[in-house]
Amino acid sequence: MIYRVYINFKKGILDPESEAIMKTISRMGFSSIKKVSKGKFFDVEISKTKKGLKDLEKISSDLLSNPVIENFKIIKK
């Protein structure tokens, strides 16, 4: 089973990368683009057990994401 772990900044955390990208987009003249925010994802293959999903939760919070500044979301592919 493959799950996708999405990671993005918590609300209110400064995202300088997206701000820099947004400025370039504005400079390029795309006035309809209002906001960009950055995230990343990992595809993780796990065994088909309850434990698999539980472990995925754990590594998502303890390793893949930085709980101080990031949220994560797990979605089945």
Partner: peptide, 14 residues
């Protein structure tokens, strides 16, 4: 160039 955000040099090409 532009903080090297996105990929180094990518934003500068615009």
């Amino acid at each position: 160039s532009f903080g090297d955000y996105l990929r180094s040099g990518a934003l500068a090409t615009k």
